[in-house]
Design a protein around this nucleic acid. Sequence first.
DNA 1: CGAATATTTGAGGCCTATCAAAGTGAGTGG
DNA 2: CCACTCACTTTGATAGGCCTCAAATATTCG
Lengths: 255, 255
Amino acid sequence: MDVQPYDGPLVRRASPPSPLERTRLWNCPLLPHDERDMLADAVMPARAIAPNTELVRENACPDSVFLLVDGWAYRYATTREGGRQISALLVPGDICNLGSLMMERVDYAVRSATQATIAKLPRIQAQKLAAEYCGIANAFAWLTMYENVMLHQHMLSIGRRSAKARLAHILCELRVRLGADGEGACSYSFPLTQELLGDAMGLTSVHVNRMMQQLRAAGLIATADRIMTILDLPGLQRLAGFDCRYLHPEDAIAR
Amino acid sequence: MDVQPYDGPLVRRASPPSPLERTRLWNCPLLPHDERDMLADAVMPARAIAPNTELVRENACPDSVFLLVDGWAYRYATTREGGRQISALLVPGDICNLGSLMMERVDYAVRSATQATIAKLPRIQAQKLAAEYCGIANAFAWLTMYENVMLHQHMLSIGRRSAKARLAHILCELRVRLGADGEGACSYSFPLTQELLGDAMGLTSVHVNRMMQQLRAAGLIATADRIMTILDLPGLQRLAGFDCRYLHPEDAIAR
DNA sequence: CGAATATTTGAGGCCTATCAAAGTGAGTGG
DNA sequence: CCACTCACTTTGATAGGCCTCAAATATTCG
């Protein structure tokens, strides 16, 4: 993930940059800059997290919202029989448990997939700010609606796409979310195990492995050293039925 | 659906009651009564809708949010190949397209399943109110988070539950959402076709039919005249792995 | 009553799961 | 630097859940 050079007006805080800047929230058009900065001030300093640590337990009542500054994580729920469904893969800039902002109990858990760095936004403070500043409250609503869009698409994949298309779709999505743009071949860091991928797509790891081999054999992707490279983006997108528009709600904010 | 007798303080509007009263929004603890009433005033009178009419087209830009006052509807998305995934079944009191409040384009469609009555909340007005009154903005955020919870659970079903458990789960959920409470046997109006059910659960209608027969054969449910009756609620819930807590975020609002 | 829609039944096959084991690679400690 | 372990990937064989296609039956509605 490259950080875009900052060429806007100078912000009032000098250093270090708030973890909030890495977040979609930072660019929410509904959030005036002064309110944004107040929110940024409420964010605690980021700290490092080991891989595979549980940030939020299922049915727990976390007193903070976690911002994923670096590394990968995922949100999941489990059935009583032990089946695990990952509802969202989280990459740098994502918010782990937005629901904790207003729900006492969240019905999902959050876990780091890699070493990660996390910043906390204490719930009480966020709520206070949202109660006083409409821009902040609207920004939270907007962020949650964005998450809903992602959940819709994810559900469409799980419910109605073949395993191969599902895999292709998630790879296309991650390319965009990680900012690995470019028309031709492109690659991005990809630290997920095939078991995690399977849990994200409602498949077994064995089947993920086989589908991945098919994508490789078709010359669509290549993997090496935890790097995913997309060799044939149009082909992969065609196979996936991928339409990137759902990932760009910023372009489409209703005013 | 029975309407609960109203025994709270008198509202200032005399008649008719606002469609908003049927909505979860009405009881949102974050929404002060005066702001709530302003929102209610912005709602247009309800009007009747024929079955199977498209309220929101996929990728469209509706200028209103639709409140489902009566009847059933559903939200869905389609793959390029024509597969349809219903992401949410909508019953009286639900909001059809909350995302339209802030997203110019929504990536799903909404369609009525039965004859329905719908009230419109013009987007512009809702946005103006949300920009001025924090309670309203927070209420929208809260509603969206509630939808988020529902989507998570639905995805868990589709991804990780067997067809039979999926069906059982959705029947348990609808019982609660329709207010068909009671410990023992209970029944509720159930106008959905098996094809719709299949699209909601990522199954074919044929398989829904077969699973439904198994539930009937096991003495768990009975159907007649578009009425669903649950004969053995504990048994159905056990089969489904159903835990109703996710449906009651009101009890668990973070303050 | 007739047409359209929805449910039910049957046969056959594919996609994905399951179970098990071998291969690979990274990290650890001697 | 080399065994050793652990986690992950890969491979194979088999089974089963769910789909597909097709047709018969039941139900709704004009």
